[in-house]
Amino acid sequence: MNPVDVDGREAHPLLHHLVRDIASRGVGELTAVVHERHGGRLIRIAHIQPANGIAWSTAADNLGPVR
């Protein structure tokens, strides 16, 4: 896992690069990966902003680089 700051933001290697969400097949810029606690579990949530349209979130494990 990558380093996480005090606010729960992960220093992900693809941060501010184009990524593909394998769940939705959407492509956009990775703007943040945050760690959130849900029911005692730690969840890594990726936030993606497309060039045009509405941002979305997905599990960080769903990310892949755009080639």
Score class of each variant (00 low, 15 high):
M1R: 10
N2E: 14
P3H: 07
D5K: 09
V6Q: 10
D7I: 00
D7S: 07
G8C: 02
H12S: 00
H12K: 02
L14A: 08
L14W: 15
L15Y: 04
L15E: 00
H16N: 15
H17K: 15
H17A: 11
H17G: 00
H17F: 14
H17E: 14
R20C: 09
R20V: 15
D21P: 08
A23W: 13
A23M: 06
A23E: 14
A23P: 01
S24A: 02
S24M: 06
R25A: 10
G26L: 09
G26T: 06
V27L: 11
G28L: 13
G28M: 12
G28Q: 09
E29Y: 15
T31V: 15
A32Q: 08
H35N: 01
H35T: 05
H35S: 03
E36M: 05
H38M: 08
G39R: 10
G39F: 11
G40F: 04
G40Y: 05
R41L: 08
L42T: 12
I43N: 07
I43P: 01
I43A: 05
I45S: 04
H47D: 06
Q49W: 02
A51I: 11
G53E: 05
I54N: 04
A55D: 07
W56I: 04
S57V: 08
T58R: 02
T58W: 00
A59R: 10
D61G: 06
L63H: 07
L63V: 06
G64L: 09
G64F: 01
G64Y: 04
P65W: 01
P65G: 06
R67H: 13
R67P: 14
R67L: 12
